[in-house]
Design a protein around this nucleic acid. Sequence first.
DNA 1: TTCATATTGACAACATATTGTCATTCTGTA
DNA 2: TACAGAATGACAATATGTTGTCAATATGAA
Lengths: 151, 151
Amino acid sequence: MKKPDRTAAGDAFASFSISVIRLAAHLNAAGDALAKPSGQTSARWQVLAAASHATMSVADIGRVLGLARQGVQRIADILETEGLVRYEENPAHQRAKLLMLTQAGEAALHDIQIRQAAWADTLGAEIGADDLRATTTTLARVLDSLARPKG
Amino acid sequence: MKKPDRTAAGDAFASFSISVIRLAAHLNAAGDALAKPSGQTSARWQVLAAASHATMSVADIGRVLGLARQGVQRIADILETEGLVRYEENPAHQRAKLLMLTQAGEAALHDIQIRQAAWADTLGAEIGADDLRATTTTLARVLDSLARPKG
DNA sequence: TTCATATTGACAACATATTGTCATTCTGTA
DNA sequence: TACAGAATGACAATATGTTGTCAATATGAA
């Protein structure tokens, strides 16, 4: 029962995939650490940031973040309970309320972003902007290939 | 309440992080799709692969995969229920049993690896081995920087 | 040998995310 | 306008992963 042969490019893609998944876990943990002093988590921070960036419904945020709307709804409901966001009537859609940050939500997001900026600046300087941009370009190409499997 | 300033490298790192996390989600979904015809999932496949690669305890596999041992234990117990792995006595440690693939486990893993090879070869050819290797190198550098925050 | 320390498996609580289903509310087309 | 189909929120089931705790077992140093 031996391992099937792969091309050199296939081997490279497999190694690459493992690295991406492991790094993502570490980045998520880092995000949790950045959000924790504000009593938040990486996931809630993403929802706060999306809502801050533009007024959107829960389903909209799901699309922007690439997540199922059900998961975003769960987070948003928690954030509402904590008083960081509120649901506003949507003149364009009776069911799809608009998610708005409260003052407390703005403050929490700002605190997190302060910490995130220092963290990203440090890591960015360590790795180098050129390498990061080149790598991000390749990541986008892979994402594109995965999204259009017959591309 | 404006967004804090970041350096250009900080911006690059932030974009990079978002791309890594999004791509990881897609790769995990792709892994689930590869494992599904064998009645498995990405996570169970990783445990099967680790156990196949070398005889290890559950805690060993957790370290190899970079996961908490408790999560690996949960997966391993499910795989045992399904008859894909079995626990063997460990002469070196009374509690830490060794995880061994059964014939059914070997067969399931092999099926998945067949599909994975074709998938990785296709994507690898599409992206290019050189770009993948260069990108993987940068990912490793970031992982290293994250692991040694004061590095 | 002894004993402090680390490792391990078991168990529980929790956070994140997916898929599926349902009823309600749009939307676009005929 | 009418109506088929899409989108949305609510709810449930499930999968993955984390942290924390506990007792049993190894390990290493005094």
